[in-house]
Write a protein that binds this DNA or RNA. Structure first.
Lengths: 232, 232
DNA sequence: CTGATGCTTCGGCCAGGACCGAAGCATCAG
DNA sequence: CTGATGCTTCGGTCCTGGCCGAAGCATCAG
């Protein structure tokens, strides 16, 4: 019911480097403790505490206390969507300027495979998207993607059941510009389902305290057999 | 190719009230002069000039000089998408806090009908969306909408041809949370096409120097006949 | 109980940046 | 040419807000 914040408040919340780094760290949908976020933000614990209080007050993140830890997470998928759209703009912006001090370097394991909110990103995510398009399982556009008829069958063989209802609750398939690869990977319900299924199959494991995803030995075989991906 | 700006820079650009107001003024896709934007931002011309320079440097807006005027517009549809997603977050955020000084009051004509980037918003926009859903012309979800079979025929009768190709270049139909009505209206290619067609029919006219849209007398009849809308 | 750990509050420092008015250019009208 | 208008640059003021360290609470381990 409330009239909501002015849009500038939202911008200002994301506009501080420390807070932006914290939000980026939360972007994969996991809950992190205040200490972890202080480290992500590159600030002292006291400063981080102030930042986190503002983010909570602004409704961008929510908090759950558990023992002597406080776990913070993004407050809603809308927040993740907003951050994503801001990343898209940030990546396209300002082609002339010499970079001030952009992301210094991408850790190789992050570049290899990581999560992006609830789906797979990095070389793995982009590779999967490429193969699904090449095999005519999905047709991908600028803002949305569609599952082909044969794609539906393929998915069931892979162990992902067709959605029962809620046909438009959340977009089935959406391209998401990959931050490190600069090419789209799959988001939306399909992206999340693929990520979940790969976890069930034991093909991937999430690393502690990081968005990085580890491909298991059986995953190496699986991605090669099913997707034709050779993950160097 | 460039690594792009850090996301915090983007946030900071939107994070100033003056700049945010200017961007909101540009949100309907039109080009405005520096003076007009100074007024929108509620700052002196000199201050506005500095803000505009920053927005241009950050790639959020582009400029075209024409005589002794300089016309500014949003640099790309991605920017509009980003602003929209930020508005969604702003509207949902912070249900507790007493509003600091939100948008003081919505001008009645803006509330009645206005443009939102390239489609219709306000009571008119929401009303159209309601009717199209009620008449089973579109099915609307949280993130996307679909045109029904009968809807396709209806659209052709209304004078909107089926899209020839580019089936997924831009999302056909997308709900967009209406800022004043707090309910969705239609965006995407369909929203833009409807807005354009209503203009062709002479049902609506854009007001000068404002996002407000005027419903003409023939528009009053048209909206009543075709959509069953009585626009008080 | 005592001590360690996680987090927040407090006090104080400091820089960035938002702001304005006046002056300086550019463009157009006459 | 002169004067009006649109916009930017410059100089200077002011204050918000980010930052830290130290101290204060809470929670858990022993």
């Amino acid at each position: 019911m409330s009239a909501g914040l002015p849009i500038s408040e939202i911008g200002a919340l994301v506009g501080d480097p420390g807070r932006a780094n914290m939000l980026s760290a939360l972007f994969d949908g996991r809950a992190l403790t205040a200490s972890e976020l202080a480290w992500s933000g590159g600030v002292a614990a006291s400063t981080a505490s102030e930042h986190l209080a503002k983010l909570v007050a602004g409704g961008l993140i929510s908090v759950a206390k558990q023992g002597r830890h406080r776990y913070f997470r993004l407050a809603s998928p809308e927040i993740a969507r907003m951050l994503e759209s801001m990343m898209v703009v940030a990546n396209n912006a300002d082609p002339a300027e010499p970079r001030r001090r952009a992301t210094p370097r991408i850790a190789p394991n992050l570049r290899r495979a990581r999560t992006c909110y609830d789906h797979l990103a990095g070389q793995l995510g982009v590779g999967i998207a490429d193969r699904l398009v090449a095999q005519d399982i999905v047709v991908l556009g600028d803002e949305a993607g569609e599952l082909t008829q044969s794609g539906l069958a393929w998915l069931e063989r892979f162990g992902i059941a067709a959605e029962p209802s809620g046909r438009t609750r959340r977009l089935l398939c959406r391209p998401c510009l990959d931050w490190s690869e600069r090419r789209p990977h799959l988001a939306g319900r399909l992206g999340a389902a693929l990520c979940r299924r790969c976890g069930e199959l034991g093909w991937i494991e999430r690393e502690r305290d990081s968005r990085a995803v580890l491909v298991t030995p059986s995953g190496l075989r699986g991605f090669a057999e099913v997707f034709g991906l050779s993950l160097a």
